[in-house]
Simulated scan of single mutants.
Amino acid sequence: MIVLGLTGSIGMGKSTTAKMFTEAGVPVHDSDETVHRLYAGNAVPLVEAAFPGTTVSGSVDRTELAGRVLGDVAALKKLEAIVHPLVRADADAFLAKNRTAGAPLVVLDIPLLFETGGRGRVDKVVVVTAPKEIQRARVLARPGMSEEKLASILAKQVPDAEKRKRADFVIDTGQGVDAARAAVKAIVSELVGG
């Protein structure tokens, strides 16, 4: 089974590209979706113990939690120490299930693949990219986003040019949905045929 890591900087179209792999019949493990699920399940008591008052009705209040950890390096590290192992365990279970099922190819959608040392967990890496102006427009269209937040997020991410250099495959989502879908199909075909 080939494990393909999918990554890209904020606003580059990673989530849309992940859906294209799913449409192409490739099982995808989505780290962001896993965190959402954990914030309504296994992570709740751990987050509440570490950050009292950040959960409501059995779920993590993401806005309250963000207010506690953003801009606080120690708090963010404390949160990552809770969440990252849970996401990793979920991904490991996903890999085991698909290996048993005989899947020839799976995708691990890992937003910070290079930043968190995730390269060793995958066989190949696909990076999604887009021109800076498209990225900026996509991100600033998100609720609650500002130029300052975007600058802060980008400062913590490996630069797009460096990600592209380290990638086995690059998909430019700035070329439109049809071009991205064709690139996904070409990658799947190259890795597993068909």
Rank of each mutant, 00 (worst) to 15 (best):
V44Q: 01
R68S: 13
D61L: 12
G67V: 08
D32T: 09
T54D: 00
V56H: 06
V56E: 06
R37V: 05
S57W: 04
V47H: 01
R62H: 05
R68Q: 07
P52F: 10
V56G: 05
S59W: 10
A49G: 07
A43S: 07
V44H: 04
L46G: 10
A43P: 01
A50D: 00
E48A: 15
E64A: 15
G53F: 07
T34C: 15
G41E: 05
G58N: 08
Y39M: 10
G41L: 02
E48S: 10
E64K: 15
E64T: 14
V47A: 04
R68C: 09
V60F: 08
T55R: 01
R68G: 03
D32M: 11
A66N: 05
T54Y: 03
Y39F: 14
A43K: 01
R37K: 15
A40P: 01
P45L: 10
S31G: 12
E33Y: 07
A49P: 01
G67Q: 06
A49I: 11
Y39W: 14
D30A: 12
L65K: 04
R37W: 08
F51L: 13
V56R: 15
V44I: 12
L38N: 01
A49R: 07
L46R: 14
E64I: 10
P45E: 05
A49W: 02
L65D: 00
A43H: 03
R62Q: 11
R62K: 13
V56N: 07
V47T: 02
N42S: 12
G53N: 12
S57K: 12
A43M: 05
D32N: 14
E33Q: 11
S57F: 05
G41F: 00
F51T: 01
A43R: 01
T34R: 09
A40V: 03
D32F: 07
R68F: 11
T34V: 08
D61P: 05
L38H: 04
G41S: 09
S59Y: 12
H36P: 02
T34D: 15
A66Q: 08
N42P: 11
E48R: 13
E64S: 15
E64G: 15
